[in-house]
Structure formats: C-alpha cells, structure tokens
Simulated scan of single mutants.
Amino acid sequence: MGFDIEGRRARLVARHHLAGTAGDPVRAASDVVVLHATDPATVFLSVLARCASVSIEDVARAMYDDRALVRMLAMRRTLFVVPADLVPVVHHAASLDIADQQRKRLVRQLSDIPTEPELPADVDGWLRSLESSVEAALAERGSATAAQLSADEPRLRTALLPTSDKKWDVKRNITTSVLVLMGAEGRMVRSEPRGSWTSRAHTWEPASRWWPQGIPELPDAKARLVEQYLRRFGPATVADVRWWTGWTLGVTRKALAALDTVDVGCGLVLADDAVADEPAAPTAALLPALDPTPMGWKERDWYLPADSRALFDRNGNIGPTVWWGGEVVGGWAVRPDGNIATRLLVDRGEAAVRAVRDAADALQSRLDGTPVVPSFPTPLEKELRTA
C-alpha cells in the first residue's frame, strides 16, 4: 500500500498507538514526540488512550517521581510534556528561541509601560538581579509555588499598570512572566501540582534537580527535532513542519535540508522510512482536547470529517475527538457526574458504534468519576457535557 489516505491513516494508528498498544507513559509520549500540556488533563488522557493498562497514578509517577517526562515551554510557545531523553533536542531547537522572545518582550514592557513600583533605568540588569534572587529562593525551598516565591522575593510582585481605559488593560503582576521565562531558559522546572491531576497550580523546582550537569549542548537540534517529527508524523508537508515547530519558512527549510527525505506525493518522509505501514483492523480511540495526534498537522482534511466545525473552538483549538480506523468520526465529553457522552458525526457501521461505546465505558472507569472540562471548550464538547 502506498501513501494514499488509507495508508496515512494506517501509519497514524500504528505509530500513535490508537489501538492502545503503548506499554507505558514514556513510550506513549515518545511515539508522538511530545504531549500537549496546555491543559493538564490532556497529558493524562492522551497517555490513557494509548496505554491499555496504565493508570492516572502511573502517569503522575512517570512525571514527578521518575522524572522521565518533563514539562517545557517549546514549539509555538506552547507547553508540552517531553520525554527526558528528548529534552536537549527540544530545549535547543525551540525553548531557547522562545525564551529569547519572552525576555525581549518582558524587558520592552518593563521599559515602556508604567510600573508599580517604578524601576531603575537599567531594566535588563534589574530583571537579571530579580531572576538570580528567585533562583536562590527556589534552591533554598527545594520546591515552591509562585505565591511562595513572591513572598520570598517581593520584586516578583512588580506590576505593569494600565495605560488605557480598555477592559483588557488592567494592572498585572510580572510573576508569571518571569517564572515562565526562567523555565523556558532551563533554570526552573514545572513540577507536581497542588491539587488533583487536573490542577493547573504547578509547583516549581530548580533545574539542577533534574539536570545536575545542565542540559547538554546540541548544535544540530533543529534537524534532530524535525527528524523526530517526520518519524512519527510523516508524510508531512513543509507547511505541516513549519506549523508544528512554529518556525519561519527559512528555518524550516534549513532543518529539512539537513535530513535525507523523499517526497511521496502527500508530503515528506525520511528516506529510510518510505514504506507504508500495513493497515490493521479498525479500532476506536477517544483522544482528549489538544491531543498531539489531531494537532500534529496543519493540513488535516485527510483525517477529519467533511464538516468538523463543531470539534473546534473559535481559535482553531480542537476538542475531544472520537477516532475509528485512523479518522475522526465524532466527539466526546465528560459530564459533571463523571459519565462520558459521545456523538458520532459520520456513520461507520454498527461495529464502530459498539467499539466507541466500549472505549467510552473503559475510559470512564479509569477516571473514577473525575469531571474533566477542557481549557478551550468546543461546541460539541459543551453540548455533550451539559446535556
């Protein structure tokens, strides 16, 4: 079989473990390169969909006890969970560029916008002094919340003041901006949250706890990252690669030029990976909002239904999706009572209906009644959740 739509779907199912074939959380993450972590619940639900016998506790253990999965700000200024052995690649290919952008933006804001209290003329020097103090406070505590670090270092509570009467233009502290910047530079790491597995209130730990010798240098990181992506998501077009990485077209083409790729008509694959995967019997999968599989390509027509508007919010974020044989056939939601509701948008026969129902029942039992509300609700998800 060549790389027609059926061939691409067969590869997607096999490589992204949509039949639940991943043996552990690290394998589940590695085989989609990284897990989206903007919504904390997505990380857990993405792993459960790919690992038939893994629990919520297993996922948490991999992240916080084993430190085999690391939260990092990276491609497209998005938060991801990254397998530990891929951290140097992601850090040097994406995170440091994002950190540079974030630093320039924050220094510009602190220089141009009135602050409370007022800052000295050397804003860059003031910011670096603040960061050093925060690092020392975090090292002293070992683990801390943003509120605890702000108590230790009051300069973190420095506020940017409004300059207009717009509703969105409000007084805002720089706490989050500084901590996010330091995290992107690899100086701090988001660790275990305060609360349940769906909580967004993460603590911070010194990076030296995770990388005592520092994150290794990697001069060819961008090419290495694209290689990882094509291995899991190819065939992919240049537009797909550019979108997924968040790079300019020039940077994207340079990274691709360093690799041995072939064009198979619907996109590029690595030259040593140009044989299509054999299709298997179709299976059902329930993937969460912002899952890395539906978010893996810019050009998505080959796996979406003809009318997919109900699956996306106004900004293009995809909600929970139901999959059958490598295509999206519907959506799902967790209701407040913990029950999972599904709806199929296309008819794929009674076997698909039964398999989706069984998949929903199996996932529901693994969530143990925990309600899950995506950060970016979509029309179908909201309708199913509130029905």
Rank of each mutant, 00 (worst) to 15 (best):
M1T: 03
E6T: 10
L12G: 00
T21Y: 01
G23A: 15
G23K: 09
A28D: 01
A29Q: 04
A29S: 13
S30M: 04
V33F: 08
V34Q: 11
P40M: 13
V43N: 01
S53R: 11
S55L: 11
I56Y: 07
I56S: 07
E57R: 02
E57I: 05
D58Q: 09
D58N: 12
V59Q: 05
R71H: 15
M75T: 09
A84R: 15
D85K: 07
R103T: 03
V107L: 06
L110T: 02
P114W: 08
T115Y: 08
W126Y: 10
L130F: 07
S132E: 15
A139L: 12
A139F: 13
Q148C: 08
L149S: 06
T158V: 06
L161E: 06
T163L: 11
D169N: 14
N173G: 12
S177C: 06
V180P: 00
E185F: 05
R187G: 06
M188T: 10
V189R: 04
G195Y: 02
W197V: 09
S199E: 11
S199A: 11
E205A: 13
S208P: 00
S208G: 01
W210T: 15
E217I: 10
E217Q: 15
Y229Q: 13
L230M: 02
R231A: 15
R231H: 05
P235D: 11
A239L: 09
A239H: 04
W243N: 06
T245H: 00
V251S: 10
R253M: 14
L256D: 06
A258D: 13
D260P: 07
D260A: 14
D260H: 12
G265N: 06
C266W: 02
C266L: 05
L268P: 01
V269L: 10
A274K: 14
A280K: 12
P282T: 14
T283M: 09
T283S: 15
A284T: 03
L287D: 06
L290D: 07
Y303C: 03
L304N: 01
P305W: 03
A310H: 02
N317W: 04
P320Q: 08
W324T: 04
V328H: 07
R335K: 12
P336I: 08
P336Q: 12
T342Q: 05
R343Q: 14
R354N: 02
R354C: 01
V356N: 07
V356E: 07
A359L: 09
A359D: 03
A360E: 09
D361C: 08
S365H: 07
R366L: 14
T378Y: 04
E381K: 00
E383Y: 04
R385D: 11
T386G: 13
